[in-house]
Amino acid sequence: MPNQNNDCQTCGKCDNTAREKNSSKNGLPLHTIIVYSENISGLLSQITAVFTRRQVNIETLNVCASSTPGVHKYTITCFCDTEMAEMLKKQMEKRIDVLQANYFTDDQIYIQETALFKLSTPAVLQNNRISKVIRIHDAKIVEVNPTYSIVEKTGLTEEILSLFDSLTELECILQFVRSGRIAVTKSTIEKLDEYIRLREKKHAQIMEQ
């Protein structure tokens, strides 16, 4: 599991300092909050409002359909203590159409992010250190034309930022974008499935009455 390794095997550049920087801010740990909701419009603003009202900044946010039909999954990262994470969880679950919200620290989940770098092709051609850096970081070149080249890097935040720092030094970046974190839990129990099963049981009971 490269995600758990502070001495990142992939890029060889990540160190504990970089991880520290990224996993806490003002002494507050980074939490990943995974929220499942019914697919009803307007939910995203309700969820983000829970954070804003409690003065917690959302660092990254990813929204997509989940593996359960009709259920949306939100992956949100923010710096907050456990008490705040618990409050955010409860306040989100209080919204009628939210099924479940759970918070995790990095050791409880498998994490990935993707970034795209748009580089100047003339710069890349002029300086062979650039392609070397791309190779060392195990990034992919996905498009090349005479004006620009596009490089894709998937990995942890610090791996991506490390590549970004190196390419910035080499003065070749035209554009840069990094996706929000996506994550799946490492637990062997699927909490959402369990919740839905319980709710279906309750529904059956109500129907019987």
Binding site: E38, I96, D97, L99, I196, R199, K202, H203
Partner: peptide, 8 residues
């Protein structure tokens, strides 16, 4: 309506 899956 007497049941909502996401609301107990």
């Amino acid at each position: 309506v007497d049941f909502i899956r996401s609301y107990d």
